[in-house]
């Protein structure tokens, strides 16, 4: 780890004043589960680390019958266990409860989950000067890329967005509150992420001197769910994740939203076809899964993700519709 100066601001304004107008010199520290790892690998070498642990106003979950607001500093374990979140947004509770193991969920925060860096092994290798670190090329394009994008078309860097909360929050029409030198701004979470192409861009639209302060989710009675396909059940990054939401009336579903995680450089909003106006059955859910995977352009080693997308979407729809999880022993 490269040496740094440690700051403990007590307000958002103080924290913002310690940030820089370019990336890399100052980093915000929430739980630290991603930042410290990057520092230990010398991929992040900030000269200032700004701890958010003592900043007022970043904690707490406030729920009423119109919306649920979650502070950026709320731990993933708290999101997974919160009664109102489990009631209104079971997909979010399950996505938060599926991140890492208990130790990670006790430190990792909502804001950190949204703003963490990608998991590409070329990016995370100190000595590999990839596109995101100022190099000329993305090594995953033609190298080892089995955990990379399946919708790779048009991308110069083929990471997958690492957040598992983002797809669910997008499916639930969440907005994120961003604060920076120009004040406070609410952004639709669907417009918060971007595909980075160089060292002056990250996985979100945040400027280097802005930060996430909260996320607000409208309460609309949507059925919702998240399903992850992982190699290890105990503790792993998803290979593919599907988050879904829809309205239900007389046994039929409408306004179906499907958002895929871990298949593209940003959370991927998929077209929902074959299910609107119909009941969720094995057949309609499978058809929606096939439609969601259409248009994928996998890399040399990510073709397998297409089948996983089909299955993940089908199962997420079945879970959201309250059907039996027959795939669980």
């Amino acid at each position: 780890m490269k040496n740094f100066t440690y700051y403990r601001p007590t307000s958002v304004d103080q924290a913002l004043a310690l940030l820089d107008t370019r990336w890399g010199t100052a980093e915000l520290l929430a739980g630290g589960t991603d930042l410290h790892d990057l520092q230990k690998e010398y991929v992040a070498q900030p000269s200032r680390v700004v701890s958010l642990g003592g900043v007022n106003g970043l904690g707490g979950i406030a729920a009423n019958d119109r919306e649920v607001r979650i502070g950026a500093g709320v731990k993933l374990a708290e999101i997974a266990a919160h009664a109102a979140i489990r009631k209104h947004f079971p997909g979010l509770a399950s996505a938060a409860g599926d991140v890492g193991g208990p130790q990670i969920r006790n430190m990792g925060t909502l804001g950190g989950n949204l703003c963490q860096r990608n998991r590409c092994w070329y990016f995370r290798d100190e000595h590999t000067n990839c596109l995101l670190k100022g190099g000329q090329r993305c090594f995953a394009l033609e190298g080892e890329n089995r955990y990379h994008a399946a919708f790779a078309q048009g991308h110069r860097c083929v990471i997958v967005n690492p957040s598992t909360l983002a797809p669910v929050l997008i499916a639930l029409d969440a907005t994120v509150e961003v604060q920076g030198p120009r004040g406070r701004n609410n952004v639709e979470l669907a417009k918060f992420f971007r595909a980075p192409t160089g060292p002056t861009e990250r996985e979100t639209i945040l400027a280097p001197n802005e930060m996430v302060t909260s996320v607000t989710i409208p309460v609309r009675g949507l059925a919702n769910a998240s399903y992850e396909v992982r190699q290890k059940q105990s503790y792993d990054w998803p290979l593919v994740q599907a988050a879904v939401s829809f309205t239900r009336q007389d046994g039929k579903v409408n306004a179906v939203k499907i958002v895929l995680g871990h298949v593209a450089p940003t959370p991927q909003v998929a077209e929902a076809r074959g299910i609107a106006g119909r009941a969720v059955t094995e057949d309609t859910a499978a058809a929606a899964g096939r439609a969601a995977a259409e248009g994928a352009k996998p890399l040399s080693q990510t073709g397998y993700k297409i089948r996983l997308i089909e299955v993940a979407v089908k199962r997420a729809l079945l879970i959201a519709a309250g059907q039996k999880r027959y795939w669980e022993a």
């Binding site: 520290l29 630290g32 589960t33 410290h36 701890s51 642990g53 374990a77 208990p102 006790n106």
Partner: peptide, 13 residues
């Protein structure tokens, strides 16, 4: 009161 990985927590935190 919470389990954490002490390798990923700065002493300062």
């Amino acid at each position: 009161g919470q389990v954490v990985n002490s390798c990923m927590v700065l002493a300062a935190q």
